[in-house]
Design a protein around this nucleic acid. Structure first.
Lengths: 235, 235
DNA sequence: CGCATTCAGTTTGCATTCAATGATGGACGT
DNA sequence: ACGTCCATCATTGAATGCAAACTGAATGCG
């Protein structure tokens, strides 16, 4: 996908990250999302130089929206800009991963607590519904689908908090986590664990027990971090 | 400062937010910081329309850096863009303030805990030093200086966590809090309270007691929220 | 008289052009 | 042979130009 020798990315392949149609008045947003997806997918790696005119050519747009997109991604911490030379995907060190999970544990715990306290109508049903679809995906060992549903579950939870700041921060955390290579859900036995941990969170929410929801959600994240480290350190 | 009748801002006054010199290769950053300061200062209010060419004229730059700056501020949540019509400063509702303090309580608590656990050399001394300067400012009832030192204290604390994600999120929280009208430090008796609450946090850090540091930091934020609400609701 | 419609004006969105700067590779001196 | 200096180039930074889209008001119709 990426020619490491020259550090150049292949335009044709990159193009598919951008939707096929036109992007009336939303070119910059479309380019931002496309680049972000390419990075989160691992298509663009920290070894790749992202040259503005190359990407503009690949997406068949001008440099302006590409420029703005890269600045936004730089603000998000996904890429690093070097003046007058180029932009690369930001590397993610082991320290960064640890720091990320520490923050994530706290924020997800807070989200679970707030969701339990508010417990908006339909929330428990929605989480359970996603959970049953995850169970089906787990039964088929469809890790990709499972991973997508897992994202959906966590998004549903944070949307239920009704706290826009928390939602924004957890969104940024999600972006960072998705950059990590290969989901932890492929780890043997992890899928079932996740299902039961999610269920514990939902049951606590159902009983409006904020403190319990926070505790089990935090435990869920601590366990996720353990698996993540095991995967990253070669198990 | 702002002509509410026309919704237009006075260029000359806005200009001073941008440093006087040249901004070689950093025009966009300079404009972003200038606009952010103008918003945090309350110079640009939610009733003001931010027109790209007006601001560009006021800063004597082209529309391009202004455009990029506004997009960044929109990502930060400070302004709201309406396609093909304009940009306004985002309003901050009472709900937003409550949501903000909920998240802030958690993040500041986490920061205090991490700082206590790591307790890098010189941290306690630095916090105490800022604290004594705050005491001096409080004695002179210099609320503006006190407020600046308060920011410095909280920044020192979060830098000491060594957690880049936490630092980024607390930075965004700080921006949001600074948008609130008039510091709570002007509230009668609040300055002394803040001093003793800060001191309690530092003493817990000094003893490397993470749990205690977290608790007192969270209590500090809960109290800050109370005062904030009292001020906002007309006391 | 009220409502839909259209048309001009304003403002942003993207493309293109121009300028500045850091990097790269070669020549030269030692 | 190696290090330094300088010219050239590649790349980003900022300015300008042009087209699309949203607003608001004026106008025609029911």
């Amino acid at each position: 996908m990426v020619d490491v020798t020259t550090g150049r990315n292949h335009g044709k392949d990159l193009r598919r990250y951008l939707g096929p149609g036109v992007h009336r008045g939303r070119t910059t947003d479309a380019v931002t999302d496309a680049l972000r997806e390419a990075i989160l997918d691992g298509f663009l790696t920290p070894t790749t130089w992202l040259r503005e005119d190359e990407i503009a050519a690949a997406f068949e747009v001008s440099r302006t929206p590409v420029r703005e997109a890269m600045r936004r991604l730089a603000d998000e911490g996904l890429v690093v800009k070097t003046a007058h030379h180029g932009t690369t995907v930001a590397p993610l060190s082991l320290e960064d991963v640890l720091a990320l999970y520490v923050v994530r544990e706290n924020l997800e715990g807070l989200a679970a607590r707030l969701a339990a306290v508010r417990c908006p109508a339909g929330l428990v049903e929605r989480l359970d519904e996603i959970g049953s679809r995850m169970k089906a995906a787990a039964a088929e060992a469809d890790t990709a689908r499972l991973s997508g549903l897992n994202l959906e579950w966590h998004r549903a939870l944070r949307d239920a908090t009704g706290n826009s700041y928390l939602g924004r921060f957890l969104g940024q955390v999600e972006h960072a986590v998705r950059r990590l290579p290969s989901s932890t859900l492929g780890h043997p036995g992890r899928a079932d664990e996740v299902l039961s941990e999610h269920d514990a969170v939902v049951r606590a929410i159902e009983q409006r027990d904020g403190a319990a929801a926070e505790q089990v959600a935090k435990a869920h994240m601590r366990r996720a971090r353990e698996i993540r480290l095991a995967v990253m350190l070669g198990e």
